[in-house]
């Protein structure tokens, strides 16, 4: 989607927000979908669509030029990953309904299932539907690009192209679903449920970033019986840096960004002091999240602590002020 058009849409919606009655959730949720989800889904469509030609190029080039084509395919995969992480860091609406994360980002990928899938020679997306998600999606492509790199004119290469088509199809379906949701007139109850889902998923997203993607790999390595290096969810340091940056970008924007955010919703309801605290805490976390690398475990753990503090603030103070019950938080039982 043209960026100019999106900019105009944001302006119009931001202007319209001033007419929203204090406490109403209808317009903020429509703003969220219009200003955040729709453009992020659109970015993912663009970057996901770039995978197929990049992979096809690897399949088509002579062997001696495959290194360069492979490097470009890796770069395209990193771009698609970044778009995907920004869109899915806080899973709302269509992402949950379609179970997209499970469809195209199932982790850990299963190398044996990938090998078996390649041997079955799927020729179409219909054939691919018979193959389990652990052998498909972005993690399987990562495996075929970094760990067991595809070669020109190979069955592995053809399989990678087919996976990329499926990712592109899911990206397109998500984009259409978000556009539809953004234009749907929501009643007060639906909007409240959407706000509740957003705040809950934001809390889940920041915890996933803090624990599964940053702290746990380091802790597991530190407590291993034999000395070992951390094993992060993505296989290259570059991909991890991109993942942390993309997920944090989404969380930060939905916390305090322009247009719809938890901060702006707090201010619209008169909670200016709490909004200031949220802005300040987010800024501290943002400083800690800059320039993280897998080799710098000390900084990773510092940043994880900042994320944990921000999560507690949202759970303990922001969510109650927004009238949201955190369904899977520390306040919930078991």
């Amino acid at each position: 989607m043209p960026r100019l058009f999106l900019g105009m849409a944001m302006f119009v919606l931001t202007g319209a927000a001033s007419a929203v009655e204090p406490g109403s959730t209808i317009m903020p949720i429509q703003m969220l979908y219009q200003n955040w989800s729709v453009p992020k889904a659109s970015d993912f469509v663009r970057d996901g669509a770039g995978l197929k030609p990049a992979l096809q190029a690897v399949c088509d080039v002579p062997q001696e030029k495959s290194g360069e084509a492979l490097a470009q395919a890796k770069q395209q995969w990193l771009m698609a990953l970044s778009s995907w992480e920004k869109l899915s860091a806080v899973s709302t609406g269509p992402l949950i309904e379609r179970r997209s994360q499970r469809q195209i980002d199932f982790m850990p990928t299963r190398p044996r299932m990938i090998e078996a899938a390649i041997k079955s020679s799927p020729a179409s997306l219909a054939d691919l539907e018979l193959i389990g998600t652990p052998a498909k999606g972005l993690p399987a492509l990562e495996w075929l690009l970094w760990v067991s790199p595809i070669k020109p004119a190979s069955a592995e290469c053809r399989y990678a192209v087919l996976i990329s088509e499926e990712i592109e199809r899911e990206a397109q379906a998500l984009s259409e679903a978000y556009s539809k949701a953004a234009n749907k007139q929501a009643g007060e109850e639906t909007a409240k449920a959407a706000l509740s889902e957003l705040v809950n998923q934001w809390v889940g997203g920041i915890e996933h970033l803090r624990w599964a993607n940053m702290e746990m790999p380091v802790r597991v390595a530190l407590t291993a019986k034999n000395k070992t290096e951390p094993v992060f969810p993505r296989r290259s340091g570059e991909a991890m840096s991109m993942l942390w940056s993309a997920e944090w970008d989404a969380l930060r924007t939905l916390a305090t960004g322009k247009g719809f955010s938890m901060e702006s919703t707090l201010r619209s309801r008169g909670h200016n002091q709490l909004a200031d605290v949220l802005a300040s805490s987010t800024l501290n976390t943002d400083k800690a999240m800059q320039g993280l690398r897998i080799a710098d475990q000390s900084r990773l753990l510092d940043a994880a602590r900042e994320l944990a503090a921000l999560k507690r603030l949202v759970e303990d103070r922001v969510a109650p002020a927004l009238g949201v019950t955190i369904g899977f938080s520390d306040a919930d039982g078991d």
Partner: peptide, 9 residues
């Protein structure tokens, strides 16, 4: 519940 959405029912 679902793996991708933690404890949400």
């Amino acid at each position: 519940t679902r793996p991708e959405t933690g404890r949400i029912k």
